[in-house]
Amino acid sequence: MCTYATTRLSVDGSGKGAEGWFGLTDASVYLDHPVHAPAGHTLNIDFLNPAAGPGARVAVELTAESARRLAAAIVAALDSAPPGLV
């Protein structure tokens, strides 16, 4: 199905897209049909700057298992940072 289920959040940072680096303002996280990944449904993340147009986008499509590993790795990396660093 086309889920349209989307979590939208504001983010602060940079991403590298088709035309180089740009500042990020938003991200969409959703489980839906991928464009490229060989799977029926994937966990998709779009890092965006809508003010710069639809092409200001860094996209990933991950299998559910790899998305969970990524989420855990992100949390683990942040938790392991030395005190005061972040």
């Binding site: 349209y4 959703y30 464009v35 490229h36 779009d46 809508p50 639809p54 092409g55």
Partner: peptide
């Protein structure tokens, strides 16, 4: 309308985020 001239996947992401 939402994404004139954009790549199809970028346009779909923009429209999808807006609810279709």
């Amino acid at each position: 309308r939402e994404a004139p001239g954009a790549a199809p996947d970028d346009a779909a992401a923009a429209v999808r985020a807006a609810g279709g």
